[in-house]
Write a protein that binds this DNA or RNA. Structure first.
Lengths: 235, 235
DNA sequence: AATTTATCTGTACGTATGTATAAATTGTCA
DNA sequence: TGACAATTTATACATACGTACAGATAAATT
């Protein structure tokens, strides 16, 4: 039950701001764990595999990451601030505009940061995006991500309620969470879309596309879905 | 690489059609595995846990289920025929009507059988529904479910294309797969909807609802989403 | 009753698991 | 240089894992 943020670090941070010794190793461990957890899930990965992937010995993983659960939680938490900041930035930018934001604007603002990290050049961010997409279907992890993601989700829900006051909150929440699930499902896998897109019995060029290929369709789908499912939304 | 359908069974089926000896045990094993796999995933369950849950000894699981992977695949396959038959029945029933089916009709016909087993009285069927909802976010399992589910999905896609000929197939497929993901996400978990629905800092009565509570919202959402994302659909 | 087949028990094997820790090493500062 | 703390190595421990199998039991067939 040790505080995972302090594991493997000097208790007193250096004043000059330089990375403390071993910080690079710590990052290697976390990166390796992030990739493997994203690929195979919590139970599908062993600490020895993480050590091997990171190129360190077994004990180092424990030294920098704590217990396996600590390590997993650290990885869930490590990147969320960046994502939340970005989402708050896009929301604030929308609000600063002269014209009132539409539902589609708000949805696109919420999704854009995530879709960009999920399809961008950094493989660690991509792995993180896939990891998040994987764990939402498992109630077991909700308690560990609730406080990380729900506050910003609430801010967006409130922003939607601002442009459509009289609306039933639970219906809006339902449609919003369905939209998030839709978004995550695209990040988790596009393989079925590819499989169903090819004509039957055609020689199998079912090549999954990039997340960005589905971006506009996804946002259209979610906006149309929310507007249909939540009576009273403007449009 | 033994044929899992024959495991633990006499190679020659009895003529009188009575259950062969041990068939009841086999069902207990498969039921227990179904519940545990649905709850914790393939890697989160051990064969010993399955044996314990089924109330049999370790060897019996191997005898009736084969290897762990065999057992998992057997469970994926065991109930799919029933579900497919039901989905084909609802599709045929739609087609036998005088009036042309709408997109919403077709969507409801596809979803109804799954939503009913996911919320019905049989806990094994409920477990199966949750298991399916769990594995779609994992490319690793797609090859094992593709041939089980995609043929019927294609029949529904073709039915939609009948009422909207000129439509872009890939966009339709994308929106359809997003709808399936939305449906599965509701079955996998309603806990976040409950969490976001309560007013902040209100004492926590975030009680997840039954799947049926979200059924109409879900179908509205999906129909509206597809119609928005796929230009050229009637309405 | 004897034989065959199906089912179940109990146990064993080799390996992998998460975690802990003593000892060795490295780098920093007094 | 010596002392000290941070980091890394190497190893050990107890338990759990998937799988295999010899033998016991039960039921049906001959």
């Amino acid at each position: 039950m040790e505080n995972s943020a302090a594991l493997g670090r000097a208790e007193t941070q250096r004043e000059d701001g330089r990375l403390v010794r071993g910080e690079a190793t710590r990052e290697r461990v976390l990166d390796a764990a992030e990739r493997l957890f994203a690929e195979r899930g919590f139970d599908g990965v062993s600490i020895r595999q993480i050590a091997g992937e990171a190129g360190v010995t077994l004990g180092v993983v424990g030294f920098h990451g704590g217990s396996k659960l600590d390590l997993f939680k650290t990885i869930l938490e490590r990147r969320v601030a960046t994502l939340n900041t970005e989402r708050r930035r896009t929301l604030a930018e929308l609000r600063s505009r002269r014209a009132a934001a539409t539902l589609r604007d708000l949805l696109a603002a919420y999704m854009a940061p995530y879709l960009e990290i999920a399809s961008g050049g950094d493989p660690q961010w991509r792995a993180y995006a896939r990891l998040i997409a994987r764990i939402v279907s498992d109630d077991r992890w909700y308690e560990h991500v609730r406080d990380l993601y729900d506050p910003v989700a609430r801010e967006y829900l409130d922003a939607i309620l601002e442009i459509a006051p009289g609306v039933d909150r639970e219906r809006l929440v339902t449609a919003f969470v369905l939209s998030v699930a839709s978004m995550l499902s695209i990040v988790a896998s596009t393989i079925r879309i590819a499989g169903l897109s090819v004509d039957e019995s055609q020689s199998g060029r079912a090549v999954p596309g990039n997340v960005l290929d589905y971006r506009e369709t996804l946002i259209d789908y979610c906006a149309g879905g929310i507007e249909r499912a939540v009576p009273g939304l403007p449009r």
